[in-house]
Design a protein around this nucleic acid. Structure first.
Lengths: 129, 129
DNA sequence: CTTCGTGCTGTCATAGCTGATACTATCATT
DNA sequence: AATGATAGTATCAGCTATGACAGCACGAAG
């Protein structure tokens, strides 16, 4: 009775997938990692609106779900790289599907079509997804 | 700055799509409606774990997003039918994509693979999606 | 006259997700 | 000695989604 993240509780396969990609920043992270392995601070800079704490949490969840792999280099200063796993690769088409629907029909959705007055610091966030 | 439901805040198209289908019972509702138009109580009986209030809210959101259409028959007792809209039809492939990924890889995801002690009344919820 | 069915709506409560801010350890650089 | 970089933790707080429960308006059925 502990709703794991999203709606895995639905019990259906759709819920499973949503629980994996359904974090506030998960799609963003995934798309960045699809472009290649990245270090923690690279991701942090790429997604400035997510605090480091959130980023850590989301990365841990993605890792726990097996869609990304964490490589730790025991150096000083520490170095950690995140990489899409094989399982993560298989999420590609799903994310593309979600993206293309959002692109095609997003304009029809009210509350999204009017970004009215988006603070400039939020623009950085507007990814090319 | 009002996070509409899910992560439309992400600003990316994926977030738009997730904000549309990303409710606890939205996928379930959508799949039931894909099978044909349904009355409110039919949906309520088909998804017994969702309270009527939640069902109403989710249906309203889906309607606001334009993916379902609500037909009101001014009768006594009232009769309301919900139907997938044209826009909603276009969500079909997306949901199928999500479902097939969940089916294929859901087993690898920990925390989902062990439904340990699912109360029987929750089983009804386990849809064939 | 009381109950039932329908399609909601209102109130209250809770729990999880998210955010801001500060802090840590270690070494390199200045 | 002071600062910075890295990869996070810790703590506190709030928002939001979800849930349980009750009520309502209206007519039909008994």
């Amino acid at each position: 009775m502990r709703p794991r993240r999203f709606d895995a509780k639905s019990g259906c396969a759709v819920g499973v997938t949503l629980s994996v990609i359904g974090g506030m920043w998960k799609p963003l992270i995934l798309f960045h990692l699809f472009a290649g392995k990245k270090r923690f601070m690279e991701l942090s800079r790429a997604i400035p609106n997510a605090t480091q704490r959130i980023l850590t949490l989301q990365l841990r969840e993605l890792e726990a779900d097996g869609v990304i792999v964490r490589h730790i280099y025991p150096q000083i200063p520490p170095k950690v790289e995140y990489e899409i796993s094989t399982l993560g690769q298989s999420l590609g088409p799903v994310l593309l599907s979600l993206r293309s629907w959002g692109k095609q029909h997003g304009g029809s959705i009210e509350g999204v079509s009017q970004p009215h007055h988006v603070p400039e610091d939020r623009q950085l966030n507007a990814c090319a997804l």
